[in-house]
Design a protein around this nucleic acid. Structure first.
Lengths: 190, 190
DNA sequence: ATGATGTAAACAACCAGTTAGTTATATCCT
DNA sequence: AGGATATAACTAACTGGTTGTTTACATCAT
């Protein structure tokens, strides 16, 4: 019963649930402690603040995502499908990212920007090699992929509420997204 | 100085700013009263409480949007461009919608669902008339349009942070979005 | 003078963060 | 081995400030 690492993990789990549901401002430290089955003070011992607890949770899951989802510039539709699958199976983390981008004070997490730069460069090279069309810029393509892949997440402002039936048939939606990205990545003329 | 309608309006203005910046949980009623230049109690006299004040602000601007942006099922790229322009010039309201979809207790505003149903039906008819391709369902097309059109908003989790240069050249981004929607709406085969 | 409009103060609940103290467990000494 | 001791893990209770909401009172227009 007296295991610091285990309690830290329980706190992080409860914090994910709490922050995902209520955001930073809406989250309650007492509730996190209760759901983690530990004393409130331990949260302040192991993690500095409410805010650093949040960023700790976010960073932890973000790095896990970067490891799980490999970027394939030569197969952008497949990448979009992978991101879609991940977003649909990990709605908590998508919510976490949404909260962060709204409540943020504009200090970006370094991991994200470096990961983004890598992808941009990879798309540029794929374009040079003729694997991806040059109708759109790498930045546009990447943003379009992420926007489409996460659009059907329960949290999205224009998501399931605009396409309620899609939630029941995720496979069809995934294929449609891949298809759409395929069209954009080729970028044929009209 | 003694004009109820005027003070109501000042409260709604200050509330928009406050809720857009901090969300429902993060917003402070004292700050709204201060920025509206009125007594805190008036907020409770004219609007029930914090939450109904929020929904009042949201509803007000949503109906305005529905009036301003006309839906053109025969020209989906043009509609996407219009939505993009609106999103870029009204970031507060986009943020308001984002907050709402995150903090929501899943009770949808009726105006939104009816407006959505109308658009879906319009796209269906456009497909029957051969004005829009049938590769994708109307719900998918509508969601894709909204997702792409709002993806470069400052608040989007994968927005400007994934495509920083796009913010400086909104016209190019708008045209790229229209082009992308054009490709999807045609839905040519590979 | 009466209802609409506005003000100041208070209130009760809440909440992030702290303090002081307790228990378990590992380490050291003999 | 076994008792003293130090330390890591944990707890209960408190603090000081904040916050949504209410109450009691003042002032203006008609």
């Amino acid at each position: 019963m007296r295991n610091a690492e285990e309690t830290k993990e329980r706190i992080l789990e409860a914090a994910l649930e709490e922050f995902s549901s209520y955001g930073i401002a809406g989250a309650r430290v007492d509730r996190i402690a209760k759901n983690a089955g530990c004393n409130k003070n331990l949260i302040y011992v192991y993690f500095e603040n409410k805010e650093t607890l949040f960023t700790t949770v976010l960073r932890k899951h973000l790095t896990r995502v970067y490891e799980e989802i490999s970027f394939t510039p030569e197969d952008l539709p497949g990448y979009a499908a992978k991101v879609f699958d991940w977003a649909m199976t990990h709605p908590h983390i998508v919510r976490l990212m949404s909260w962060y981008s709204l409540e943020q004070k504009m200090d970006n997490i370094t991991e994200r920007t470096t990961a983004r730069d890598k992808k941009i460069k990879a798309i540029m090279e794929a374009q040079k090699d003729g694997l991806v069309g040059t109708t759109f810029t790498p930045g546009f393509l990447l943003t379009a992929i992420m926007a489409l892949a996460t659009a059907w997440t329960p949290t999205h402002p224009f998501g399931p509420s605009h396409d309620p039936d899609a939630v029941k048939i995720p496979k069809e939606t995934r294929d449609a997204i891949a298809k759409a990205i395929s069209l954009i990545a080729k970028g044929e003329e009209s």
